[in-house]
Amino acid sequence: MHRMIFPNLPVKDVAAARAFWTHLGFDFNEEFCNDRAACLVINDLASVMLLQEDFFHGFHQTQRHTGTEALICLTATSRDDVDRLCDRAGDAGAEAAGTVDEGPMYGGSFRDPDGHLWEVLWMETS
């Protein structure tokens, strides 16, 4: 059995978050989108729910956290794909968080406009 995963992230402005990820070339599942939520499609088994902050915290009566809560990593198809996605993120308002080159692994990272930390990683496989 293949499991699906739907991480949920709080965002300040759902429309702005959608615009950011659309600029990076991602699609949304409109069946699960409204003015308080947007379903960012990563692939057939992974989507990220971008939820308006008050809506996000209403599920379990949680409170806003001010530090890094998670590090989310997306794979890339090549080194150029890493650079291209990170550059597009910067163009769309993300803060660059650096690159790492460790032999068979190459990655970049950025903080999206809501402060979530994303890594983009390419791994050479033989």
Rank of each mutant, 00 (worst) to 15 (best):
residue 32 F to W: 11
residue 79 R to G: 05
residue 77 T to Q: 11
residue 106 Y to A: 03
residue 91 D to N: 15
residue 84 R to E: 13
residue 82 V to L: 10
residue 118 W to G: 04
residue 25 G to C: 09
residue 98 G to N: 10
residue 23 H to Y: 05
residue 88 R to M: 10
residue 122 W to S: 03
residue 2 H to N: 11
residue 61 Q to G: 10
residue 22 T to I: 03
residue 111 R to E: 02
residue 60 H to P: 01
residue 126 S to E: 14
residue 83 D to F: 07
residue 113 P to F: 05
residue 30 E to T: 09
residue 123 M to D: 04
residue 114 D to P: 11
residue 19 A to Y: 04
residue 84 R to L: 12
residue 101 D to V: 04
residue 51 L to S: 00
residue 45 L to C: 04
residue 112 D to T: 11
residue 3 R to H: 15
residue 47 S to V: 07
residue 20 F to H: 08
residue 30 E to A: 06
residue 85 L to Q: 15
residue 123 M to C: 12
residue 71 L to N: 14
residue 122 W to D: 02
residue 31 E to T: 12
residue 10 P to D: 00
residue 19 A to L: 06
residue 50 L to A: 01
residue 117 L to V: 09
residue 56 F to R: 00
residue 110 F to A: 10
residue 77 T to P: 06
residue 34 N to L: 01
residue 40 L to K: 04
residue 101 D to M: 04
residue 45 L to E: 13
residue 4 M to L: 09
residue 54 D to V: 03
residue 55 F to H: 00
residue 100 V to W: 07
residue 119 E to I: 10
residue 120 V to D: 01
residue 83 D to S: 11
residue 78 S to W: 14
residue 54 D to E: 15
residue 16 A to G: 07
residue 22 T to F: 00
residue 46 A to E: 14
residue 81 D to V: 10
residue 96 A to M: 12
residue 116 H to A: 02
residue 53 E to C: 00
residue 52 Q to E: 01
residue 93 G to P: 12
residue 94 A to W: 11
residue 63 Q to G: 11
residue 108 G to E: 05
residue 65 H to A: 05
residue 35 D to G: 00
residue 29 N to I: 12
residue 38 A to P: 11
residue 28 F to H: 11
residue 93 G to F: 12
residue 88 R to H: 12
residue 49 M to I: 13
residue 47 S to C: 07
residue 77 T to N: 14
residue 39 C to T: 02
residue 115 G to E: 10
residue 99 T to R: 15
residue 17 A to H: 07
residue 13 D to H: 08
residue 41 V to M: 14
residue 101 D to C: 06
residue 117 L to A: 01
residue 86 C to L: 03
residue 96 A to R: 13
residue 29 N to P: 06
residue 112 D to M: 09
residue 98 G to D: 06
residue 98 G to E: 03
residue 41 V to K: 14
residue 8 N to W: 02
residue 34 N to S: 08
residue 30 E to M: 05
residue 42 I to Y: 09
residue 53 E to S: 01
residue 50 L to C: 01
residue 121 L to F: 08
residue 15 A to S: 13
residue 24 L to T: 14
residue 105 M to H: 11
residue 101 D to Y: 02
residue 83 D to A: 06
residue 82 V to I: 12
residue 86 C to H: 13
residue 91 D to E: 15
residue 66 T to P: 09
residue 73 C to F: 10
residue 20 F to I: 12
residue 90 G to N: 13
residue 55 F to Q: 00
residue 108 G to S: 10
residue 37 A to L: 01
residue 47 S to N: 11
residue 94 A to R: 06
residue 30 E to S: 08
residue 109 S to K: 14
residue 120 V to C: 03
residue 44 D to K: 08
residue 85 L to N: 11
residue 41 V to A: 05
residue 125 T to D: 02
residue 86 C to A: 15
residue 32 F to G: 03
residue 47 S to R: 08
residue 20 F to T: 08
residue 12 K to A: 01
residue 88 R to L: 15
residue 5 I to F: 08
residue 46 A to W: 04
residue 116 H to R: 04
residue 90 G to I: 06
residue 4 M to Q: 10
residue 74 L to K: 09
residue 59 F to T: 00
residue 14 V to W: 05
residue 3 R to P: 04
residue 27 D to V: 09
residue 99 T to I: 06
residue 118 W to F: 15
residue 88 R to G: 15
residue 110 F to I: 14
residue 99 T to C: 04
residue 9 L to T: 04
residue 11 V to P: 08
residue 105 M to Y: 07
residue 5 I to G: 06
residue 111 R to W: 13
residue 106 Y to G: 04
residue 82 V to Y: 09
residue 119 E to W: 14
residue 14 V to R: 04
